[in-house]
Computed example of a mutant assay.
Amino acid sequence: MFTTKRPLRFGDCDPSGIAYFPSYLNILVGVLEDFFTSLGFPFRAMTDDLKIGVPTLRLDLTFKSPGFQGDELDFALAVKGIGRSSLDMEHTVSARGTVLWTAKHRVVATSLDTHGSIAWPDDIRAALTHHLEMPHAHDPAT
């Protein structure tokens, strides 16, 4: 699991000091960028050198509790599945010991030349596979 922290800043909140939910999406993109950097594939190198983009195909968020200006957000990113060109992740975002929101997120590797999906290159696939969380044998959802 990849974890990181982000502050919830004044500009991320509405006038009441509660997180403005579209700001969460902008922050989440930064977390995804940091995740790929931690794998050895910074977005700049992926886009400039490899000509690979990773647009979001699906994003399903569930809000559980409000975030407030000044909160330190704890992001946990779990890799749940890797397809030919897709990557399925689950995010859990907490602050003050409380889960604020969760998300199921799918991105797809695409060619920046053709804008069509492409298979993950072997080195990126290997790095992603290293983070793949396997379901437990006793998990009834398996």
Rank of each mutant, 00 (worst) to 15 (best):
T4G: 09
R6T: 15
G11M: 09
D12S: 13
D12P: 15
D12I: 04
C13Q: 10
D14A: 09
A19N: 10
F21K: 02
P22E: 02
Y24I: 08
L25V: 08
L25K: 01
I27V: 14
L28M: 12
F35Y: 08
T37G: 04
T37L: 07
L39H: 07
G40F: 10
F41H: 07
P42Q: 00
F43I: 04
M46T: 01
L50A: 07
K51Q: 03
K51V: 05
T56N: 01
L57K: 01
R58H: 14
L59Y: 00
T62Q: 08
G67F: 00
G67D: 06
Q69M: 15
F75V: 05
A76T: 14
L77S: 00
L77G: 15
G81A: 04
R84C: 08
S86N: 03
L87P: 10
L87M: 09
M89G: 04
M89L: 15
M89F: 12
V93H: 12
S94Q: 13
G97F: 00
G97V: 04
V99F: 03
L100V: 04
W101K: 07
L112Q: 07
T114I: 04
H115Q: 12
G116N: 04
S117R: 06
A119N: 02
A119F: 00
D122P: 01
R125P: 06
A127M: 10
A127V: 10
L128G: 11
H130F: 14
